[in-house]
């Protein structure tokens, strides 16, 4: 009991910056936006309380549903692809190989570019009419024109963009692999374990907290994909709303349409959805994530 008490005291000293940040920077805007979700607020005049009107409006809003569909497809498809890629390359690059530093940097480069304005022009170069992909496919007699302007293909170009920027999760995986004590490998080697056994008995179990971390944070990030969609579609979410990501729609409502009340309501619905998905992940994590401190 006395030890717990002492730890509690120490904990609150450690948490001073966090507390200050919560009160000053995070909580007030968070509460403000929650309040705004129940108001009609056009930024220029003061907010007017309007009950659940914003939430009711969503059900009849075709754009809202389009945004939900686009975002859901994106999260479900791009996250496994991106993480799978990142893990695979992290494993390959973790083993001794000449020129590792070069590869690591090379693979990380796209992530550095990923959100710059230049990507819009770049992507058009690759997926546009007469772009790289179009020309390659026309060799096989496929004339698809611009992928970016084809409502059934445009979202896939954004998924490719996300997979292409797998650098961040890869770096985190690499750091995680480095964190695994060499002794543990030695221990199973003494028991005569081969590469595969080392992998399944040491690498994967010890990496699960990091896999879990990447899964949670990349999922949250994917739900909130904004910059890439904004850059590639020029902020429209076109063609035919096929790249109208949820946060892009929030942005349009809040910053272009000045409907900050509705935008806040949309944001809280998104937050609830992310919260739910994250909670499910946490529940499931009990079955597969292994912590060294258990």
């Amino acid at each position: 009991m006395s030890k717990l008490h002492r730890q509690g005291g120490a904990a609150h000293v450690f948490l001073i910056p966090w507390w200050l940040g919560l009160v000053l920077v995070t909580a007030v805007p968070l509460i403000a936006s929650l309040y705004l979700a129940f108001t009609d607020y056009n930024i220029l005049s003061s907010p007017k309380f309007n009950g659940l009107e914003n939430f009711e409006r969503m059900f009849q809003d075709d754009y809202f549903w389009a945004a939900v569909r686009v975002t859901a497809v994106y999260v479900v498809v791009s996250i496994p692809l991106q993480l799978g890629f990142a893990l695979l390359l992290a494993l390959i690059l973790d083993r001794g190989l000449r020129g590792l530093a070069f590869y690591r940097s090379a693979f990380y480069l796209p992530s550095l570019l990923g959100t710059s304005v230049a990507v819009a022009i770049l992507w058009r170069q690759i997926f546009g009419d007469n772009g790289l992909v179009d020309r390659a496919l026309s060799i096989f007699g496929l004339e698809l024109g611009s992928w970016l302007q084809n409502p059934s293909l445009s979202l896939s170009t954004l998924i490719v963009l996300n997979v292409w920027t797998f650098g961040s999760p890869m770096v985190i995986f690499l750091a995680g692999l480095r964190q695994i004590p060499e002794e543990l490998y030695e221990a199973v080697k003494v028991d005569g374990a081969g590469i595969v056994r080392q992998f399944t008995a040491v690498t994967i179990p010890l990496l699960t907290p990091i896999i879990f971390f990447n899964l949670i944070l990349q999922t949250i990030g994917a739900f909130q994909t904004f910059t890439q969609a904004h850059v590639v579609s020029g902020g429209t979410g076109g063609p035919a709303n096929s790249t109208l990501f949820y946060t892009l729609y929030i942005y349009q409502q809040g910053f272009t349409n000045f409907d900050m009340g509705y935008a806040s309501a949309l944001a809280w619905v998104l937050m609830a959805a992310i919260g739910l998905v994250t909670a499910v992940h946490f529940v499931l994590s009990r079955y597969w994530v292994f912590y060294g401190d258990d």
């Binding site: 919560l22 995070t26 007030v28 805007p29 968070l30 403000a32 936006s33 705004l36 930024i43 944070l217 949250i220 739900f223 909130q224 904004f226 946060t247 929030i250 942005y251 809040g254 910053f255 900050m260 935008a263 806040s264 944001a267 809280w268 998104l270 937050m271 992310i274 919260g275 994250t278």
Partner: peptide
């Protein structure tokens, strides 16, 4: 606090 999109926090 990671879950709420920044666009609605930025104004407050």
């Amino acid at each position: 606090s990671v879950m709420l999109p920044m666009h609605v926090l930025v104004i407050p």
